[in-house]
Design a protein around this nucleic acid. Sequence first.
DNA 1: AGGCACTATTGAAACGGAGTCAATAGCGAC
DNA 2: GTCGCTATTGACTCCGTTTCAATAGTGCCT
Lengths: 219, 219
Amino acid sequence: MILQMPRRRAVKRATRAGRTAVKPRVRLDTDERRAQLLSLAKASFSMRAYDDVSIDDLAREARISKGLLYHYFPTKRDLYVAGLREIADELVGAITSVPEHLAPIERVRAGLDAYLDHVTRVPQAFVSLMRGGIGSDPEVAAVIEGVRTRLFEQFLHGTPFAPVLAGNARFETAVRGWIGFVEYATIEWCVKPRLSREELRDLFTEILFAILGVVVPKG
Amino acid sequence: MILQMPRRRAVKRATRAGRTAVKPRVRLDTDERRAQLLSLAKASFSMRAYDDVSIDDLAREARISKGLLYHYFPTKRDLYVAGLREIADELVGAITSVPEHLAPIERVRAGLDAYLDHVTRVPQAFVSLMRGGIGSDPEVAAVIEGVRTRLFEQFLHGTPFAPVLAGNARFETAVRGWIGFVEYATIEWCVKPRLSREELRDLFTEILFAILGVVVPKG
DNA sequence: AGGCACTATTGAAACGGAGTCAATAGCGAC
DNA sequence: GTCGCTATTGACTCCGTTTCAATAGTGCCT
């Protein structure tokens, strides 16, 4: 009913040498701005729950308008997922750099060391990643599932059984289950550490090989 | 500015023998209504994600007004959590009825049978429970954590080590980790079963005892 | 220097869903 | 009947996400 009206514009205010400090309009290029927002998102969503982080808050903290935020990320959820992806990639990236040519046990231990080091560095981010800030969102689930799969492959390659047993349902269920074991125990450890980092690493290692002892044909 | 105005009331429509079918106002007593809403909530939140279920939808499906829904559950989240609690209790209840006086291994197997039977009966509910529909909500986390703790105690009592090792951090971490293992493998199994129910049960059992072999002092 | 084009940025308003509340309808008791 | 109690309604408020035309900075061309 009401026709489109020309928008009113705010009255001009003295922009230079005015006594009342006018918010300077900072221009960044696309990449910098995007990086800034991602980093802010990762921090905010790690500290507070998804619903408790409002776009207004984020825009205010970034000292930009809501509109600009939406220019970079079309949706709050997109922003969240983008942040989560970064956290996930950092985690996986941290352990994909394990030296080759070690004995299987040593490779697993080294991988777990890298993993736990990284987790220790950013425990909040890890917990919020793995708890899946938005339950049952397919994209979020995909990110987490991706982490598990990549970890699975990492640790699988540390053992000499990979080529023989790839595709064996019992074997794969057991090793993927071990990933679940590690994940859950690590979250609990972040919240309330009852073992040292080394004890936890050794426990994980011993249990992986115990599990392999169960599912690998002749031990 | 605008003062409180007396509410307009909808025009009276012929309530009896009218041709236009008037929605009958069904009166239920508190318990029935509450049960109906809980059951609807469990179904809806199992099918769709939390954010994709709107109060309006639920009210429409229940053939009541939003206001009434809010009369029973003061908050959408409360409704969700109440449904989750029921699902959790059903799950735990299903396996707390394992016959006593069996050998440890048999008790564990029986417990897992009951567990997997129940999961098979309501896989959607199980998955949505364990994936934690609302991430990082403290109440939701508490429900899930409660399930894990009760399962932990169940299965712990199935072994003869409980009294000796209660409080031992390495032991408890390992057994709780096994719960994580079972949980994650079960979710995957619900989504894409690659083993039979019996194979999965046996795998879980064997791995529990392998894990115990690692953390119990002399095997 | 002044206009031009191009892109980052803004602000206000639309939109949508959660949550509120005074008013109303059904139902049993007297 | 009509009184009183309780279940129920629906319009309204509120608040956070999302949209989009308008605007301001920046460098370039002349």
